[in-house]
Design a protein around this nucleic acid. Sequence first.
RNA 1: GGCGCGUUAUCCAAGAGGCUAGGAGCCGGUCUGCAAAACCGUUAACGUCGGUUCGAAUCCGACACGCGCCUCCA
Length: 493
Amino acid sequence: MALRIYNTMTGEKELFVPLTPGRVGMYVCGVTVYDYCHIGHARAGIVFDIIYRYLQYSGYDVTYVRNYTDIDDKIINRANQEGTDYRTIADRYIEAFDEDMARLGLAKPTVEPKATDHIGGIISIIEALVAKGHAYLSGGDVYYAVETFPEYLKLSGRNLEDMLAGARVEVGDKKRHPMDFALWKGSKPGEPWWQSPWGNGRPGWHIECSAMSMEFLGKTFDIHGGGKDLVFPHHENEIAQSEGANGCQFVRYWVHNGFVNINAEKMSKSLGNFFTIREVLQKYDPETLRFFILSAHYRSPLDFSDQNLDEAQSGLERIYNCLASLDDILNGNPQPAETALVRDLPQVGLELQEKVDSFMTRFAETMDDDFNAAQALGVLFEMVRATNRFLAETEKMAPLSLSLLAHVRALFVEAGGVLGLFTTAPSLWLERIKAAKACQIDISTDEIERLIAERSAARRAKDFRRGDEIRDLLLAKGILLLDSAQGTTWNVK
RNA sequence: GGCGCGUUAUCCAAGAGGCUAGGAGCCGGUCUGCAAAACCGUUAACGUCGGUUCGAAUCCGACACGCGCCUCCA
């Protein structure tokens, strides 16, 4: 099997062949740091996180670049609103972004450059574009002349006439063609600025990504990612800039993730229907959110709702329950000596052994198929079921059984490492979920414990009516009682 | 108006011609004083109408509905 990636440029899944064998250069558009990130940003972050992890898992030496756009109209506007400077705003939200992504368990990219640290590179590219006739100076700004780049709009598969028919393009008097876009903007009073051959000013939005990708990955590199909404204009413009300046192919594989929807509508800042990552993490565990995001293919739309998050949590709990059972058994028994033959296993054991043997192959096959994490989760669940069956039907754990279970446990760690899941000890995770639910209950832990003690006494005295009364009372408060041989524990409904 | 995408059982969701996806739920069972939790088992689908094919959820065409981009946006 070999990795196949859906390339937006061709609209097809293509065999992935890196420019340099064994190495991958990947650039993903980060965020403009002017506010807290929402769930859409979380999805993009997690999608490219697992792509990054899987490429590494597949043996590639990956250089992953994800930028911060730290100079932009929105940042300046925000600074003006708050009566501060753009740097304060940018630094504040860079910090917030880092916190959010760390909580979501994203691996750190190889480089996280800031646009403002690459003004020199930006100016060089603009100079090259001007020299080649792709760009022109007009009223203190520098614009890209889209008509000089015949392949413009090749990524989104449109043409200039159709775009203009859309009639929502503002015709600026400084532009030769309405679709021309700014590479460099002359600074207005009070705005941050840098020196340039065209006077003091600041970079346009698109040019920074051309500059930073070239700096760290070269003129041509393997994978460029971002949200679907960046296809036009951002990525089209990057292509025009980079290929216009360098005269060679910019990106080999374009990868775009789908949106997060609310009630089947795109979640976005402009629509105002968004939830920030922080808000959601107050209610849901970060791994639940990750699991939810991975439960749909990265190019599909994903509908965000409490019900869907709850379902994701139930599914993840199922896996963690299985892992917790495995840990109990593995920790409670001596390390197996590993001698017996496979055929000594009972029938359920053979079934599990078969799942174990094929697991990583099947997992890799699904991930090789355009990073199909949703299907990979299906493979995981099949192993959960086989494991649970084995545990239920095996009374005495022979060394061979223990060795098999240890193998299962290791496979979950291996797959979890690619998906960014199961990073927490199962017992801790389950405890954490319980604690989070407990916060929403209006009865104290002490009171619950007191009632449980009273009920246990009643049950010992065979007073089951009183016992059931207490159980119903707690249930009304949303507390579930779990009786077992070891005693009674509780959980939140 | 231009370009593109989607429609899978109660819900979420994978699936690019023949091979049980998976999860949540329902129902049945194991366990239990009875329950619950957990676990096991089971259930059901491919928007509509045509076409291609021995065979279509999967390919082609039309229609309906939904969504996205065309303006800053992950």
